[in-house]
């Protein structure tokens, strides 16, 4: 069987997910033998334009990105969003709630019109995608599992559980008992609850579970001393785009 050809692309991102790919592969050299990487700008000069699987890191945040995304969609059999920027808009979408002109002027002053940009979106807002590997950054094991699934000819899938389930299985002390706050109850598991394990509350980088009870969690956050600004800040580190979509669909409170 011919080895599947794989390409990596990045749009607006920190390249941390691609670095995580490099780190994952160094522990699994057998996967490097099972696939052919034809494009990975961060790590290699060779550029192949013939590929079956495209991993896309980063958000779409300027008009010029759309043509490239469409081209990738046409060439690839499977398009996989790699990480929160591609999956959710990630931290890039924080600015979507701010007036764009203000944001650009704040950083670039009266030269703001030199640099084209618009609100940051997940790539699924531009082209249809086949699967997602969530997280900021992606989880190494989940990436390896996803590639193994793809090599077996099936799409990776993620069980619709909240982070709390993994956190309990780890035997962590809930951070709420330590005077901190956490989005674990509404966030999709799969990261092995790594943030609570290292003493921090979850910020929701993997996105929402399918039926998040956001009003109930807001009440809990308020009971733990957060004001409206703090609650909004917590829920907009990674979830700005998803929540704006939910609000538009009138599901949010």
């Amino acid at each position: 069987m011919a080895k599947p050809k794989i390409a990596f692309f990045e749009f607006t991102s920190c390249e941390g997910c691609q670095l995580t790919v490099v780190d994952s592969l160094q522990d699994h050299p057998e996967l490097l033998d099972a696939v052919e990487i034809v494009q990975f700008r961060e790590a290699m000069s060779e550029k192949g334009e013939d590929y079956q699987i495209a991993f896309i890191e980063g958000s779409c945040s300027r008009p010029g990105d759309e043509a490239k995304l469409n081209e990738i969609r046409e060439k690839a059999d499977l398009v996989i969003a790699l990480g929160a920027c591609a999956h959710l808009g990630g931290v890039n979408a924080i600015r979507n709630r701010m007036p764009l002109e203000d944001v650009r002027k704040y950083v670039y002053g009266d030269k703001a019109e030199w640099y084209a940009t618009y609100p940051a979106r997940p790539i699924s807002a531009v082209i249809p995608i086949d699967a997602v590997i969530p997280g900021c950054p992606i989880d190494r094991n989940e990436f390896i599992r996803a590639v193994t699934y793809l090599l077996q000819g099936r799409l990776p899938y993620i069980p619709d559980n909240p982070v709390c389930i993994e956190c309990k299985l780890k035997g962590n002390v809930c951070v709420y008992h330590r005077g901190m706050t956490c989005l674990g109850p509404i966030t999709l598991a799969g990261c092995d609850a790594i943030c609570p394990t290292y003493g921090e509350g979850c910020d929701g980088c993997r996105g929402l579970i399918s039926a998040p009870n956001i009003p109930a969690l807001r009440t809990v956050l308020a009971e733990h001393g957060m004001n409206e600004t703090d609650i909004e800040a917590k829920m907009t580190v990674f979830l700005t785009y998803q929540r704006m979509e939910l609000e538009a669909a009138d599901h949010d409170s």
């Binding site: 924080i94 600015r95 203000d102 704040y106």
Partner: peptide, 21 residues
């Protein structure tokens, strides 16, 4: 590279968010 506007994104947030973002 696409402009990223991190400085503007921090404004109005609790100080504890800065290093995460």
């Amino acid at each position: 590279e696409t402009p990223r506007f991190f400085e503007a994104m921090l404004r109005g947030r609790p100080y504890g968010d800065s290093s995460t973002i």
